[in-house]
Design a protein around this nucleic acid. Sequence first.
DNA 1: AAGACGGACAACCGCCCGCGA
DNA 2: GTCGCGGGCGGTTGTCCGTCT
Length: 358
Amino acid sequence: MGRAPCCDKANVKKGPWAPEEDAKLKAYIETHGTGGNWIALPQKIGLKRCGKSCRLRWLNYLRPNIKHGGFTEEEDNIICSLYISIGSRWSIIAAQLPGRTDNDIKNYWNTRLKKKLLGRRKQSQMNNRFSGDQKDQLANCGEENTLSNSALERLQLHMQLQSLQNPFSFYNNPALWPKLNPLQEKMLQALQNLNQSQNSSNPSILPQVNNISPNAADVQQNVEFLNQAAMSARIQQELQSSMSGNNQLNSSSVEPKTSSEMLEPNNTSTFTQAEIDNFLNMNSKTASSFLSSENHHQLPEFDSLKEMDSARDAMMWWSNNDIDTNSASSSSWDSTTLMHHHQSDQGIYQDYAIGYNM
DNA sequence: AAGACGGACAACCGCCCGCGA
DNA sequence: GTCGCGGGCGGTTGTCCGTCT
C-alpha cells in the first residue's frame, strides 16, 4: 500500500516560484506564522503549491537573514570539518552556520568544495608521483579506471580528511565551536580529558563523568556514552596508526572486555567485525539516548554528538567498498588489512595533506 | 551565430520519524 | 499497538546561464 500524497499533484504548480507567490507566502507567514500546518497553508492563502514546496521556499529563500553564496574561508573549513565528523548531515552543518540553509550548503559542497578538495589532490598527485610520460599514460587510461577511481576518490577524501582531524577534532578546534553554556563546556572538558586519559597511564574517566551531571541515572548514561566515545577514538586511533605505517598493532584479536580495558593505552588489540558492529549500533542508541535525556534541553547546540552515527556509516562504507572481497570472509577486522591498503596509497594521502590547506 | 556542454542553484521526490488519534 | 498524518531530511532532478567549440 503506497502512501497517500501530501497534496493533489494534478492541481499544484511546480517549478520556479513567481515573485507574486513569494510575496503572498512571505506576507502571510510574517503576519500569521505557519499555523503549524504547512499542508493547509497554501489553501489558506490561495497558492497552488504543495505545502512542502511552501515550506522549502520559506526555509531556503524567503526566511529573514538568509545568506546566499559568498561562502567565506572560515565557513569552508567549518563545512569540511563537520562533513568529516558527521557526513552529509546538512541540517546539522547548517545549524552551525547562521544564515545558511542545508540546501545551500549541500549544493555548495557538491558543486564546489568537494571538487576543490579532490581537484587539489589530483593536481598534487600528478605533480608529485609521475613524470611527464607517466602523466600521459595515466590520462590515456580511459574508462576502465573510472569506477575504481571514483570509489578510490571517495575513500581518499574520506580518509585523508579523517586523518587530519580525529572524530573529536571539532571539539579540539576552538575556531569551530559554537557558543557553549557552562554545562556544554563541562561536557567538552570531559571529552578532552577522556582523550588525554587514553594517552596517559590513568585510564579513569569517572571523575570527569561525575562532573557532567550530578544525577545518578544520567551518570550511568554518561559513562556508557563516553566509554563508547573512547572506543570510537580508539578505532580511529587504529585507523590512523595503520595509515601512518608506524603501527605496532598485532593482528590477533584481543577483545577489550571493560571500559577500563578499552581505555588501557597498552592494549594494542584490534577489533572484530562483530565488536565494531555492536559498538556502532550502541553508539546510535546511546548517543540519541543521551541527547534525548534530561541533558538534552540543556545542550541544544550539542547535536553534533549525533555524529557517533557517522562512524557506522563510515565503517559500512569501508566494509562495502574498500576492504577487498578477499578479506571479506574473515570475521576479524584487523588492522593488517588496512595496513595493506594504506601502504600502497600512502603517497596519495600525503598529497591530500598538502592540498587541504584552504 | 548557434548549438553543445558544464556549473550553479532551485526545487522536487521519496523515505523516515515523531506524534496524536 | 497500529495507523495516518505532517514535518524534516538527504538525494536527485530540473532549469538557467555562461563558456566553449
